[in-house]
Computed example of a mutant assay.
Amino acid sequence: MPGGGYSKLPNGSVVVALSLPNPLADGRPARFLVHAANRARALTRLRNLGLRAVYLRGNAEPPTLDEITAVLHHPDGLIWRSQPGAVAELWHPVRALGRPVG
Rank of each mutant, 00 (worst) to 15 (best):
G12N: 12
G102E: 09
A42L: 12
A42M: 09
R47Q: 12
L46R: 02
V101L: 08
L20F: 11
V87D: 15
L49F: 02
R45C: 02
A30Y: 00
L9K: 05
V14W: 02
A37N: 07
G50K: 02
G27K: 11
Q83G: 05
S13M: 13
V14D: 00
L78K: 06
R47Y: 08
R45W: 03
S13C: 00
P21W: 02
R47G: 15
S82E: 11
L65K: 12
S19M: 07
N11Q: 12
P100D: 13
P75V: 02
I68E: 07
T64C: 01
L56K: 08
G4N: 12
L18E: 11
D76W: 00
G5E: 11
H73A: 03
P93C: 04
R95K: 01
H73I: 00
V34P: 05
K8C: 01
A96P: 01
G27Q: 05
G98Q: 11
R57Y: 09
G3C: 06
S7L: 09
G27R: 10
H74L: 01
R95F: 02
R41W: 05
A36S: 15
T64R: 10
L97A: 05
R41M: 14
W91L: 06
V34F: 02
V71S: 10
P93R: 13
A88R: 14
S19V: 08
Q83L: 07
G58Q: 03
M1H: 06
R31K: 09
P93I: 05
N11D: 15
G102Y: 02
G77I: 04
V101M: 12
R28Q: 14
G4C: 03
T69E: 14
E89K: 00
L18D: 00
Y6D: 04
E89N: 12
R39V: 15
L33H: 08
K8D: 14
I79F: 02
R41H: 11
W91H: 10
E67Y: 08
L46D: 01
R31A: 09
A86C: 06
P75H: 15
P75R: 11
L43T: 10
L78M: 15
L46W: 08
S13V: 01
A86F: 06
P93H: 09
S7I: 11
A17L: 05
L72D: 03
G50W: 04
E61F: 12
L24W: 13
R45M: 11
H74P: 01
N38K: 13
